[in-house]
Design a protein around this nucleic acid. Sequence first.
DNA 1: ACCATTCTTGAACGATCGCTCAACCCGACT
DNA 2: AGTCGGGTTGAGCGATCGTTCAAGAATGGT
Lengths: 197, 197
Amino acid sequence: MANTAKFDRREVLEKATRLFWQKGFHATSTRDIQQAIDMRPGSIYAAFGSKSGLFREVLRFYAENMTDQLTRCLTANSTVLGGLRAFFRLLLLEGSSDAPSELCLLAKSLSELDEEESELLRETRALLAATEEAFRLQVEKAVGRGELGPATDTALLARQLQIQLIGLRSYLRATGDRGAVSQVIDHLFEGLPGDKS
Amino acid sequence: MANTAKFDRREVLEKATRLFWQKGFHATSTRDIQQAIDMRPGSIYAAFGSKSGLFREVLRFYAENMTDQLTRCLTANSTVLGGLRAFFRLLLLEGSSDAPSELCLLAKSLSELDEEESELLRETRALLAATEEAFRLQVEKAVGRGELGPATDTALLARQLQIQLIGLRSYLRATGDRGAVSQVIDHLFEGLPGDKS
DNA sequence: ACCATTCTTGAACGATCGCTCAACCCGACT
DNA sequence: AGTCGGGTTGAGCGATCGTTCAAGAATGGT
């Protein structure tokens, strides 16, 4: 018995993520979803419970993919800072051509979710905090390797990376100016090595 | 003849702005608006044409208020950089207690508006570009006054301010951590005076 | 071959959406 | 006092929203 003739959950989540990422939670109707993932309402509700339930899984799926991309950038570069820089360039300059939105889905959700959808908002905040913590761990590793001065405030630098990344993605959506974005990224990472107090 | 017994347009825009700022364009229903501004649908549509038309005026009203606040911060400080810093602190630390949202309404709209609502999106982008240009003019003034080195790239610095401001407001909504925000603002403005190549 | 069980289907529910319009109200002018 | 005309009103339009559920299709066990 059990799982017979089921859908491919990963594929469904991929398609749903693209849709939510492009249009946002509120502006995506369940009928949009039905069409995009080729499932009927009953099946969707059996599998995910509600539109919110599906979105919750989408948020996690998105964050997981982001983490994977960061890991890939780090292993492909000899230095931690080089890896972080590659990650920024990937999200902002290279990957953005086929991405559903210039923005981070988490930042977009943080923006549109009301306090009334408190569970989704909590989930979003938790995933963003996890991203910042991932940055902090990498910064710490960079300090350990001597890429950054030993007095580096790792929590502050991770926070700054998070702020810059979200700000840059907003800026890209506002202007579409990749040259300007590229210039800011360069200044951001060039200003790092010989660190402060 | 003409305008008899009319509503106070400014007061209406203030209330509508608070509402849209809090809930966003899509999540705000026309019935929410009717209640908030105490007008019936017919009057609203006679005055503003549509929900989009009202929102367009709200965006302009909001941007105008932001500009006023920036001007006030600049005249209240002896240096341009001090004025800019006060503006950042006002939006992020002081003013945010009674604001409808931690986020910038323009950034929020940029995030949720689809390409199909192209006129609103265009308006939003134009108002953000105007803000960046206002920053650039102030940075130029700071260079002229010797607060910044003569080789300062004013366009780049203005862009960085814009990116940081939006990023910081997102971060505040994500974490609610004013101490962290304050620390980033301090580092941001302390790193400026003795400028680069 | 036949039941038992699970998954899928799509019509349809009540709620709410943005918006319209015929009827009404009321100050301005003669 | 009477008429005119723009401003206001609120019931209600058709569309769409998130969600449900009875009925059908598909599978595994015997």
